[in-house]
């Protein structure tokens, strides 16, 4: 009984992490550091909530969340790739902008500072949308793997992240591919935000709650490989599953149990390198390095 609860809670906790981490993977394998996942999730979540409330259609809300994610991704990508901004600084800027920007929007659109109105029924074909999205997130793991390792796009994207000079020498548009990677990353992170809204039933400020950063941690843990990253997400999500059980069924104070996911993330990141000693993480060789034609 408890085991089943933990499992269900883990899958749902893993969904936004999976989407965001796979998004980050596409961005970073192309060479662009994407610390902006957190902010992209928030913007995507707000857009999904607002459009669902406005049109009454959760499907349009999902589309809006995804498009907003793509747009914010494109913004971060443009800053990093074409304007050669520092990737980390640009990402932090996006995150801070998202945190305060969505609060401002809440105030302007709904006159509240905490959360949007409730969205109403969020079902498709009689099944909660969150279930659909959880399936999408799980399916995204093999899909992203296939995209990276079995398609022309993936080959070129990885070349841009490993050795952009080589990609350029064979006539690949390095900037274009990198931007495509970041935009795809925005799509997935936006979808992660949509999932949060569909779970909560409304938009609440700061609702991403550090998941973008945990997704990044999973990315490092999984050494930028889709399947390993997914395993990382599940491990970190387990913390959330355990949290729910601790809180609801054992009665540990929420102040303590809420630390679980973060504590587990920290613990795993600290201990993992000791377990697999000698083999360091292998980020894409040109990660964070702007490409300038010599």
């Amino acid at each position: 009984m408890i085991l089943q609860d933990v499992l269900t809670a883990t899958i749902f906790a893993a969904t936004p992490l999976l989407l965001a981490a796979l998004g980050g993977l596409l961005s970073e394998r192309g060479g662009v550091v994407n610390i902006a996942l957190e902010g992209i999730m928030l913007f995507g979540a707000f857009a999904a909530a607002a459009v669902t409330l406005w049109t009454g259609s959760p499907l349009l809300g999902i589309i809006a969340g995804v498009l907003t994610g793509a747009l914010v991704g494109a913004l971060h990508g443009t800053a990093c790739i074409y304007l050669r901004a520092d990737h980390v600084i640009s990402g932090i800027a996006v995150n801070m902008f998202a945190a305060s920007g969505t609060i401002l929007l809440l105030k302007v659109v709904y006159g509240t500072k905490g959360s949007s109105p409730q969205l109403g029924s969020l079902k498709l074909l009689g099944v909660p949308l969150t279930v659909h999205l959880a399936v999408v997130a799980l399916a995204a793991v093999p899909l992203v793997w296939f995209l990276l390792y079995r398609t022309r796009f993936g080959l070129r994207l990885r070349a841009c992240g490993e050795y952009p000079e080589a990609a350029d020498a064979v006539g690949i548009n390095v900037h274009g591919y990198r931007l495509a990677g970041v935009v795809l990353s925005g799509v997935l992170a936006g979808l992660a935000g949509v999932f949060l809204v569909m779970t909560a039933g409304s938009f609440a400020k700061h609702m991403s709650a550090g998941r973008g950063y945990i997704a990044l941690a999973a990315l490092v843990f999984g050494r930028w490989r889709p399947v390993a990253v997914a395993i990382g997400c599940l491990v970190f999500a387990l913390g959330r599953g355990v949290q729910d059980v601790l809180e609801l069924e054992i009665g540990i104070p929420p102040q303590l149990s809420e630390m679980m996911p973060y504590l587990l993330t920290l613990l795993v990141l600290a201990v993992w390198p000791l377990i697999r000693r000698g083999r360091s993480a292998e980020p894409p060789a040109a990660l964070g390095r702007p490409f300038v034609r010599g």
């Binding site: 990885r158 070349a159 490993e162 050795y163 000079e165 080589a166 020498a169 064979v170 060789a285």
Partner: peptide
């Protein structure tokens, strides 16, 4: 080229 334009991990 003098510096080879091959992606090392490919």
């Amino acid at each position: 080229h003098q510096h080879f334009t091959l992606v090392p991990v490919f």
